[in-house]
């Protein structure tokens, strides 16, 4: 269903930037940043965003998060390059990419002779074309999109009551915990972020989380005007490291933003 008939049929998401920033608690304890992200505009008017949050309780979760992100990201970039603009089933692509990332984590655990759970991390993988958005999501963090000018929660943090009860990609139950969402509409903006941003990004209405317009609107507006993507990434990094965000979460923070922009 086209949610916004007035919008151009294929808003091309081509401007994408973001950052992972270490949180005050990890700085203080001299723990590395356990968040990781990878993103790019691919061929055939698509963008790929992968974001992961290494579990605080897992010894090598920084390596796990980096590997999960890079392998899922590269899988999708290669798949998009191979299809060369033909209609692709994004649902299958993000599912296979997630399984691929999980296999890579298993291999790394074997190579490093460590337990798979030592690499414990979440994973959010988003692929958007002018016609469709597909998200594969294990663990917390979230994806918010601008669809027809409205903020929409595409994939939420999940319903675990306690933040330390996240089911990671390394869990035996990862397939049960995997959520795949597709949006068959032209998306003009997308934000993918880890749980360190959740307090800033959401309002709580009753027990549900709702994307907070006063957080996202300035970010999407900024993304639509910035021309230098490195400058954009630096601006996001500055925001994530700011006292304003850190007084609400001492965790690592990742935020990646993609917009259709004005060419």
């Amino acid at each position: 269903m086209d949610l916004n008939p007035q919008a151009p049929k294929c808003a091309r998401l081509f401007r994408v930037f973001g950052a992972s920033v270490i949180g005050p608690m990890h700085l203080q304890r001299e723990i590395p940043c356990q968040d990781a992200c990878a993103y790019a505009a691919a061929v055939s008017d698509a963008i790929v965003i992968a974001v992961a949050d290494g579990l605080g309780s897992a010894a090598k979760s920084d390596a796990g998060a980096q590997l999960a992100v890079s392998s899922a990201f590269e899988y999708c970039m290669a798949a998009l390059a191979a299809t060369q603009g033909e209609e692709t089933l994004l649902y299958d692509m993000v599912r296979s990419a997630t399984a691929h990332a999980r296999e890579k984590l298993e291999s790394l655990a074997q190579a490093e002779a460590c337990k798979l759970r030592d690499l414990g991390c979440t994973l959010i993988l988003a692929v958007a074309t002018g016609r469709q958005l597909a998200v594969a999501h294990v663990g917390d963090g979230a994806v918010v999109a601008l669809v027809g000018g409205c903020l929409s929660l595409v994939s939420g943090p999940g319903d675990s009551e306690y933040t330390n009860e996240v089911v990671p990609l390394t869990s035996m139950e990862w397939q049960d915990a995997l959520r795949i969402v597709t949006v068959d509409a032209s998306v003009s903006g997308i934000a993918v972020f880890t749980d360190g941003c959740q307090r800033a990004a959401f309002r709580k209405v009753e027990d549900a989380v709702v994307p907070f317009d006063k957080f996202f609107n300035p970010i999407f507006e900024y993304a639509n005007t910035v021309s230098d993507l490195t400058e954009g990434a630096n601006e996001i990094a500055e925001l994530l490291a700011s006292a304003k965000l850190c007084e609400n979460s001492d965790d690592d923070k990742t935020l990646v933003v993609g917009v259709a922009g004005t060419d």
């Binding site: 959740q198 307090r199 959401f202 994307p211 957080f215």
Partner: peptide
């Protein structure tokens, strides 16, 4: 004005 000054926090922990 930077992004930091423009965004607001949805669910602040401020007592």
């Amino acid at each position: 004005m930077g992004l930091v000054d423009q965004v607001e926090i949805g669910n602040p922990t401020q007592p």
